[in-house]
Design a protein around this nucleic acid. Structure first.
Length: 806
RNA sequence: GCCGGAGUGGCGGAAUUGGCAGACGCCCGGGACUUAAAAUCCCGUGGGAGCAAUCCCGUGCCGGUUCGACCCCGGUCUCCGGCACCA
């Protein structure tokens, strides 16, 4: 017999929706639990099978936590601004809002179809003016606190789409969507000063339960390095400030390198100080025209030009040294200038060899520095040729030289980060308007808060323009406005915010989604903060996850939110691959659509399989056969209900297995080891087939299985009459008795000299003498101990005994 | 190059404060039921030798520590993910 999932599943979904079973209030006597999954971008393709893994996982956790007695907030929403919708709208001449609306309807239907226990009264949509009013409001606060600014920046420009792309939309130097080359274009951009929070974004990770690889990836991305800034003099009299992590090697600095874009070079050229000005200009031009792709390709061979006519002076010994420009020095990191120590830096060494610069050893302990750079920073190196630093280790020399530099006023300790400020504007239509106005007299002025939301205007065409201006720029009625400060004529900003804006604070809105006075009430924020458990993809680690931590810290600083960090715990799931281990894609034809799986096997099978598919944190490939195995398991559970004995007690044969399973499933859900939780349930069902199953035993099984296969369990719960005090999902998680998870007798392994020779059954907690006697009585053991002396025995209680015989 | 993760049957994967390797599922083989098939149920299933009881080998590779190593240590190879001239 197979159960009729096509009838059962909609029945329960309807009931949950009508009764608002999973609605939660912002107050309760129970402890609170806020479980969060990343809200989807509602694409035209609908829900992907990849969405179902994290969503099902957190749904299982949420359902189980409700049974544990928590007041659970488990919300869902839509991150609906973005390029695909806009491109679809352009192609099909439909308003993006209409496209978004239709896609959201489809997603909502699919999420219901899978039986997720979201609180549907809290659904949010980032494109709803009532929502983006607060996204704009946060931007205004950032502006007021000096964390938003506008500056001219090179951006990525797709030559075919004729539009600006985000960095993450440029893959290997070409446009992610059309494959056309991407070039750099100077544009004025809104920026957010995330770098101001770099140190706190690293430090505060210590108190969070993020999986280790998320923490390390964020730390690497922020890229903190400590060192010193040192001021060199140019022979022209100007200061050249460099950043170095190795001030101890200062005596070995034999030349300097500036980035081609460095301001000093520009000045020297203008003043005609460089004898080889043409070479210098040619090099600058070549560097500027290089795409990202070419720059990385050129990493292998170092290039550069020596500046003839200007030299630098090493402040520690007064030596004059040459100055080069080279694109291996980045304009955007540190000061855009370095001191080069070829003896102790691989890149400087390579450059020095090519350009014939002097290589002076200042740290001894390595090989000949003329043959390779010696870069060790530990105790192996001792300073030489370095005046007062001679004889010190690298580690000891750094504070000495730093102090010396500070006393002489030519340098200071300094920390640098790889993290750059966040490019926050997009020249596209389908995003939040940036609530700023430009006045010739007053400069950039913020809209006053009572004018929010600043609505996205209707435009005739969403087509991006050739010159890279937002389509909104053509709406002169909207663009032309008055200055909020002086009342004179002014123009609105026509760029919109990136997709990361709306998702940087959405978890706050879930706490109080209909509030029109604030992004959420103080009480709601206080009650639900922080998110207790947030699961999402690794691909968001250095984008969404970092951005939202930044915004949250800012909101904390201005007293809007009560916690320093938004998320207490972060876990991450692996990707779902197609059958055969390849990435799912239309071109490979291996895309699995959740609609099809649910139609063929039901949502409970889909849910159970996606949890059983393998280690949650690792990638897993889809297998149609394994789906059938999960359907077979659910059928076996269903069929078992027809042969129950009447008792509500646990039988002696099943008791210990049931207690073990209750503990195992609970622990495994909390540890996200869903695959072994289901394996334990399968094993329990196998036991029931073996030993028979009572009504009471079956009742417990349904409760344990209900987070995974909620529809079927509710149906059986009802039909067996267990529903006097509500649905299965409203029951308490079954209790287990630790003492009953162990049987009266145990099987123990017997080793002779470390090799397994027999298995014996002895009473639980037998002492060593009893176990050894039982072991020696076994003929298989005797075979290996015969004629030998027992020199030693090792007992692992209830598990193993090892007899050492000689 | 740097950072992180992983290497276990035909397959997905279990099991580590060091204690019976391969749970659970898939595939495959055999049996029961059936006119037959599907479904279902039962049995088997790491490799090798043997009629069998049983024995030997086995967690990428080499070595070490230990009564005992998938697990710890040293070395080495491969794969995946991220970053990539960050001074």
């Amino acid at each position: 017999m197979k159960y009729d999932f096509a009838a059962i599943e909609p029945k329960w979904q309807k009931k949950w929706a009508e009764e608002k079973t999973f609605h939660c209030e912002n107050h309760s006597d129970k402890p609170k639990f806020y479980g969060l999954v990343e809200f989807p971008y509602p694409s035209g393709q609908g829900l992907h099978v990849g969405h179902t893994r994290p969503y099902t996982a957190m749904d299982v956790v949420a359902r189980k936590r409700r049974m544990d007695g928590y007041n659970v907030l488990f919300p869902m929403g839509y991150d609906a601004f973005g390029l695909p919708t806009e491109n679809y709208a352009i192609k099909n001449h439909i308003h993006p809002a209409k496209v978004t609306h239709d896609n959201i309807e489809n997603f909502t239907r699919q999420l219901h179809m899978l039986g997720y226990s979201f609180d549907w009264d809290r659904v949010i949509n980032t494109t709803d003016p009532a929502y983006y009013k607060w996204t704009q409001w946060i931007f205004l606060q950032l502006w007021k606190h000096g964390l938003a600014y506008k500056t001219t920046m090179p951006v990525n420009w797709c030559t075919s789409c004729k539009c600006v792309l985000a960095n993450e939309e440029v893959v290997d130097g070409v446009c992610e969507r059309c494959g056309a080359p991407v070039v750099r274009k100077e544009k004025s951009q809104w920026m957010l000063k995330i770098t101001e929070y770099a140190q706190r974004l690293i430090d505060d990770l210590d108190d969070l339960d993020f999986i280790e690889r998320v923490k390390t990836q964020q730390k690497n991305w922020i890229g903190r390095s400590t060192g010193a800034e040192v001021t060199f003099k140019a022979t022209t009299g100007e200061d050249i400030v460099v950043f170095t992590t190795r001030p101890d090697t200062l005596f070995g600095a034999t030349y300097m390198v500036l980035s081609p874009e460095h301001a000093l070079v520009k000045g020297w050229l203008e003043r005609g100080l460089l004898q080889n000005a043409d070479d210098v200009k040619a090099y600058q031009a070549a560097a500027a025209s290089k795409s990202d792709l070419e720059r990385t390709e050129l990493n292998k061979e170092k290039t550069g030009v020596c500046l003839d006519g200007v030299r630098g002076v090493n402040p520690v010994n007064g030596k004059e040294i040459p100055i080069f420009i080279s694109d291996y020095v980045l304009a955007t990191y540190g000061t855009g200038a370095i001191m080069a120590v070829p003896a102790h830096d691989d890149r400087d060494w390579e450059f020095a060899k090519k350009f014939g610069c002097e290589i002076i050893e200042v740290v001894s302990g390595g090989e000949d520095v003329q043959k390779a750079a010696f870069t060790a920073k530990d105790e192996t190196g001792i300073l030489v040729n370095s005046d007062f630093l001679n004889g010190l280790t690298v580690k000891d020399a750094i504070p000495v030289i730093t102090k010396w530099l500070e006393e002489k006023g030519i340098g200071e300790a300094k920390v640098n980060y790889k993290l750059r400020d966040w490019v926050f504007s997009r020249q596209r239509y389908w995003g939040e308007p940036i609530p700023m106005v430009y006045c010739e007299k007053c400069g950039w002025q913020p809209l006053s808060e009572d004018q929010l939301p600043l609505l996205l205007p209707d435009v005739d065409s969403y087509e991006p323009t050739d010159d890279g201006e937002s389509p909104i720029s053509k709406m002169t009625d909207w663009v032309n406005t008055t200055c909020p400060h002086c009342g004179g004529p002014a123009k609105r900003e026509t760029d919109t915010m990136p997709q990361w804006a709306g998702s940087s604070w959405y978890f706050l809105r879930y706490m109080d989604p209909h509030n029109d006075q604030a992004l959420a009430s103080e009480e709601a924020l206080k009650y639900w903060s922080p998110v207790d458990w947030y699961n999402g993809g690794m691909e968001h680690t250095t984008l969404h996850l970092l951005y939202s931590r930044f915004w949250h810290k800012f909101l904390y600083d201005i007293g809007v939110v009560p916690t320093k960090e938004p998320y207490q715990k972060r876990t991450s799931h692996g990707m779902i691959l197609g059958e055969g281990g390849e990435k799912m894609s239309k071109s490979r034809g291996n895309v699995v659509n959740p609609n099809d799986v649910v139609a063929q096997y039901g949502a409970d099978t889909m849910r159970t399989y996606i949890m059983f598919i393998g280690d949650f944190e690792k990638a897993a490939s889809w297998s149609d056969n394994a789906v059938k195995g999960c359907k077979r398991f659910l059928d076996r559970v269903w069929n078992l209900s027809e042969n129950l004995t009447d008792s509500m007690e646990y039988s002696a044969a099943n008791e210990s297995a049931i207690h073990k399973a209750i503990k195992k499933v609970a622990d495994d859900i909390e540890a996200m080891k869903f695959n072994t939780a289901i394996a334990a349930l399968m094993a329990l069902v196998n036991d029931f087939y073996q030993n028979g199953c009572s009504k009471g035993e079956y009742r417990t099984l349904l409760l344990l299985l209900s987070p995974f296969a909620p529809h079927m369990c509710e149906e059986l719960w009802e039909s067996l009459g267990f529903n006097a005090d509500g649905m299965a999902c409203q029951q308490a998680w079954p209790a287990y008795d630790e003492s009953k998870t162990v049987a009266a007798e145990v099987q123990m392994a017997v080793q002779v000299c470390g090799k397994l020779r027999a298995t014996i059954t002895v009473p639980m907690d037998s002492d060593e003498a009893t176990v050894v006697a039982a072991a020696l009585a076994d003929p298989k053991v005797q075979k290996f101990t015969e004629g030998k002396n027992l020199v030693k025995t090792i007992l692992v209680p209830n598990k193993l005994v090892n007899l050492i015989a000689k």
